[in-house]
């Protein structure tokens, strides 16, 4: 099973992005500066943005979904319970998982943005997909919820997950790191070998590696454990 960007060129006017690579099973993290094309690439991989050239191959992927940056774009149910049912999920259990107990009759768009994001991600990750593309899944979430989303990602219910993010504090364990640099998608490699080459690494990871630590993965706990091993 894989998702392949085959000599892809994405264009908006004079802006271009080149992408050539294979996303195999596992958790892939894609980072890049503001305006580098993360959302455009996520949309192209999901099949809702037409590439200027090249093609996207999906091998063994029957069920693919994209979580857009802004959860409002996904809302179809007037009330929270309608929204949950639209994902074919049980209302009470989903509310509990999203930390929204008792809010089933609230109007969906009256939730705070963080609450709406929680509801959306709980619904999306509560279904079974072959491939999940998450565009800025941590934006607007508090630290506790970011950890919960990371745990859901790490559960491994979805064989292929591609996360586009610039989150700096709470990240899930990842298998492969990619970066968008100077108009092209670049694969930094598998974790942990990719960590030293990762220019957009979170500050805590950079700080730990500057101290000579060799984290096994990219989470804060991996960085602190590596530092503790050094000083043990």
């Amino acid at each position: 099973m894989y998702l392949k960007a085959d000599r892809l060129t994405l264009s908006h006017g004079e802006w271009n992005l080149r992408a050539d690579g294979v996303f195999g099973q596992g958790v892939h993290l894609v980072t890049g500066p503001v305006g580098s094309g993360k959302t455009t690439l996520a949309s192209a991989l999901a099949g809702i943005f037409e590439p200027a050239s090249g093609r996207i191959n999906r091998d063994g992927i029957l069920h693919l979904t994209l979580s857009m940056q802004f959860p409002e774009y996904h809302v179809t149910g007037f009330l929270v319970k309608d929204e949950i049912r639209s994902w074919h999920l049980p209302v009470a259990e989903t509310l509990r998982q999203a930390g929204l107990d008792g809010r089933q009759n609230a109007k969906t768009l009256t939730l705070s943005r963080g609450e709406l994001k929680r509801l959306h991600l709980t619904c999306l990750l509560g279904n079974l997909w072959d491939a999940v593309i998450l565009d800025e899944p941590f934006a607007g979430l508090d630290c506790r919820e970011k950890k919960r989303v990371c745990a859901a990602i790490e559960e491994g219910n979805h064989p292929l997950i591609i996360i586009f993010t610039h989150e700096q504090a709470v990240l899930p364990a990842a298998d492969v790191i990619w970066e968008i640099e100077e108009g092209a998608l670049v694969c930094r490699g598998k974790v942990p070998e990719a960590i030293p080459a990762w220019k957009g690494a979170p500050r805590y990871l950079t700080r730990a590696t500057e101290e000579g630590a060799q984290p096994k993965n990219i989470r804060l706990q991996d960085a602190t454990e590596a530092l503790c091993r050094m000083h043990a």
Binding site: D142, C143, R144, K146, K147, Q168, A169, V170, P202, R203, Y204, R207, A208, E211, L220, A223, T224, L227, C228, H231
Partner: peptide, 15 residues
């Protein structure tokens, strides 16, 4: 004791 503690402070405490 929570997730809200700054990550760079956690790192500094390990150095």
């Amino acid at each position: 004791e929570t997730e809200m503690y700054p990550s760079l402070w956690r790192i500094a405490e390990c150095i």
